[in-house]
């Protein structure tokens, strides 16, 4: 049998196995799925803004109640910056992948999306970690300086805080880099291969 004979068999194939679709149930399922997706997007955005909105007054109140030094308030710009950055980035890189586009276009869009996600995670220290860690370190440094008369105990406490901060920073950074290696890099390679196979216009060898 050559491919054309197989083509004939393919077109003459009886409907075995058969796909049974319960349209009513399926439409309900699709609507539910769409609602869940919309709700997920809404709550994700709400959570990201909400955390900032709750943290800022809480931070201010805590600073005033405990009469903390000015370095405490250096965290406020970070609490505004991080959710604002996430929201603006999401709006700018709104998912544009439309499955009804051509395979090439769809793969290109997916690749752009994966590359942007990779960029975000690779630079997580610039837009997420350092804006938090620097004001925290500044606060502990300032506190240590103000209480410098406290002796060795104070030096050890401040050094401990620096250490905890450093460990947390490294752990979060590594987690993000692992996510790139484990998930995004393989997906990127897959998409690059797919695009290359569509792009390769070299004449048939042999």
């Amino acid at each position: 049998m050559n491919p054309d004979d197989f083509k004939q068999a393919w077109q003459a194939q009886t409907s075995q196995p058969h796909l049974t679709v319960n349209a009513e149930l399926l439409l309900n399922e699709l609507r539910r799925n769409q609602q869940q997706f919309n709700a997920m997007i809404f709550w994700r955005d709400a959570r990201e803004i909400g955390v900032g909105l709750v943290m800022i007054p809480a931070w201010l109140m805590m600073g005033m109640k405990l009469d903390l030094p000015w370095a405490w308030y250096l965290m406020i710009p970070a609490l505004i910056w991080i959710p604002a950055f996430m929201l603006i980035d999401r709006r700018r890189h709104k998912k544009v992948n439309v499955p009804s586009e051509s395979l090439y276009q769809c793969a290109e869009n997916s690749l752009a999306e994966v590359e942007h996600q990779t960029w975000l995670l690779r630079n997580v220290h610039w837009w997420y970690l350092l804006p938090i860690v620097i004001p925290m370190m500044a606060f502990f440094g300032h506190l240590g300086w103000e209480l410098r008369g406290g002796g060795w105990w104070m030096v050890i406490s401040v050094a401990g805080m620096f250490l905890i901060n450093g460990i947390a920073f490294t752990a979060v950074y590594r987690l993000n880099q692992d996510a790139i290696r484990g998930t995004l890099d393989p997906r990127r390679r897959e998409l690059q291969i797919l695009l290359a196979s569509l792009r390769d216009e070299s004449p048939e060898a042999g």
Binding site: P17, H18, T20, V21, L25, L26, E29
Partner: peptide
């Protein structure tokens, strides 16, 4: 598991 889509031999 829902019964919206089933694939079976006829």
């Amino acid at each position: 598991h829902n019964a919206a889509i089933e694939i079976a031999d006829v």
